[in-house]
Nucleic acid binder design. Structure first.
Lengths: 246, 246
DNA sequence: TGGGAGCATTTTGTATACATAAATGTTTGA
DNA sequence: TCAAACATTTATGTATACAAAATGCTCCCA
């Protein structure tokens, strides 16, 4: 049986959870400039809760890598240079590649298989018209998320799931990254999904890994293509700093 | 110049930092049984601080994945089945592989190159006797850590470094994993380092990734070999659960 | 005997007062 | 005019009191 079917979806029971959710949204949507300080008392007024839950939220976000914290100096918004955003995609690529491989090695549960087939079917239907219309963007995003999350779940490692989540919540700060959404592009991504699914189902571990990895790398290149200024692209030709390690 | 050379090494300035350090050690060394509850007040007495810093430490450890937390139900020690520990090695393998590739793509700073050469030189010296003596274990551990951390730093991604750190602090609970420490074994690992370094220095990105990845996978197999009971090994022939995803 | 309602206890969540450290601004001396 | 030291302000760290939720227990009743 499906446990927890009747749960109220994500009703934050405690004030700490509410505050955390609001703060995370604010942080991820670029409400704070890089390096900006987040004063506890100011947030207190802004969020309508005492310092305790606010501090809890700040600590959590800091440990997720979104904020910086120095003892007795409070929290600051982290800076996310373009290079770090690109690295997040590289990380996702190897992590999701690993997830696909593990899923192939373990095999799919019937429920996971059903979910994957469902999302492939929905994608087929969406693309069957040959053109994309208003609202398809959100619909495909849902389908896409379902496919990926199911693969992560099928890999069976909580740590892996957590890490992918961390990669995905990196604030795409400056250039409000708009991933391309032309028919050809979505078609390509959907075909990728199809192949990954076949590889997992056929227990072709190595192939599943490579396909998924390249699938995410494709997103990376799309993101880089969408960078508005040439300056951002130049920022990517980083060179190693002479800073001392660790 | 080397900045921060005269720092007192890791003197935890605040009580919260002290408590966090102590609690993390306790948790990682298996002081708590899987599923055991960690009462705030009890820890308060045990650690000699009020609930505030204790709670902060608990929250941090929970967000690192070492503890579980349910609102109004407190914190519990997480369970780490053998499979999850093996997954941690798989994760390390792909993450450190990525680190080696990025280091090769970016190129080494002179300081990073120096550190890598130093650790290789030290390893050579340690192994030149042809046998291992008392104390070599700790010495090689230091050398090994230096090599790996330098590669991570050379990759230039903080998120990557954080994730590797998470992988490395998984509590090796049940079978107090003793990695083999025979001469042949250490020799092999040292040779791996040598090759990885050459690949990075020669900007052979793909080769660096594969070599590092396999280097860590070798550790994984050594760990599995060292599992005491056959029961643990059987535990690895996991099959997908029929649980509902997400 | 079994089950459940209701109270007591325990434990966590929240607010807040106080302590302490940083940052700021001002005064004073050369 | 500048700088160093002191005083003031501000912000974070810590402790604790109170509120609310969960747990466990007793006792009653069918």
């Amino acid at each position: 049986m499906n446990q927890r079917l009747m749960d109220v979806p994500n009703a934050p029971s405690t004030r700490a959870a509410t505050v955390l959710e609001e703060l995370r949204n604010a942080v991820c949507n670029g409400q704070f400039a890089p390096g900006e300080r987040l004063h506890e008392v100011r947030l207190t007024e802004q969020l309508g809760a005492s310092r305790t839950p606010v501090r809890a939220a700040l600590q959590k976000l800091a440990s997720e890598g979104l904020l910086d914290h120095a003892p007795n100096h409070g929290y600051r918004m982290r800076e996310f240079p373009v290079a770090e955003i690109v690295y997040a995609f590289e990380l996702r690529a190897v992590l999701e590649g690993l997830a696909a491989r593990l899923a192939a090695e373990r095999g799919l549960s019937s429920e996971h298989q059903r979910l994957l087939e469902q999302s492939l079917y929905d994608g087929d239907r969406l693309l069957s018209r040959g053109v994309l219309i208003e609202g398809d963007r959100a619909a495909y995003s849902t389908i896409n998320t379902c496919f990926h999350q199911t693969v992560h779940a099928a890999a069976g490692s909580r740590m892996l799931q957590d890490m992918v989540r961390l990669c995905r919540q990196v604030p795409i700060s400056s250039p409000r990254m708009i991933v391309e959404f032309e028919y050809r592009d979505v078609r390509r991504r959907h075909d990728d999904h199809q192949r990954v699914f076949e590889a997992i189902l056929g227990r072709e571990a190595w192939r599943a890994e490579m396909l998924m990895r390249d699938h995410v790398m494709y997103l990376k290149t799309a993101m880089i293509r969408s960078l508005p200024t040439r300056a951002a692209a130049i920022e990517l030709r980083y060179s190693p700093e002479e800073a001392s390690p660790e």
